[in-house]
Design a protein around this nucleic acid. Sequence first.
DNA 1: TTGTTGACCGAGT
DNA 2: AACTCGGCCAACA
Length: 136
Amino acid sequence: MKKFKRNPSEPPSLPIESNKSKGIVRDGNFFEAVYRIVRMIPKGRVSSYGAIAEFAGTRLSARMVGWAMNAAGAANPPVPAHRVVNRNGMLTGKHHFPTPSAMEDMLRAEGIEVIEDRIVRFRELFWNPSDELNKK
DNA sequence: TTGTTGACCGAGT
DNA sequence: AACTCGGCCAACA
């Protein structure tokens, strides 16, 4: 009934070592993969949780990208989490920054217009990780 | 241990 | 057009 579970022809998601009991995939591949991708987002551009999740190989795990961003504050080198928004260009994660306006301020500082928690001209500013592969 | 909740997303109703 | 639901999976109660 539900038609799109996991496409068997696609790679079986990340080599995440899901050691749930011992926990902490944060030190494993998933968080690192996400951070790596997010760090690729050029200044002045933005991407979405879903696009990042897909590129990381876990298409249906966009929510985990948000979770990764939640922990990204302590990451080193830094992760530009403010460049990640949802598929509509809305700043859904702004409340997780140190101050309520931090995310918006950082985007503005990079030349991105934000109106009512939404990125203006999101379509043009959207950056898909796979663009990097195509252009080379 | 089981259950619920997300910085999500696409399909169905 | 608004709403619900299922899927992912880590954290937390």
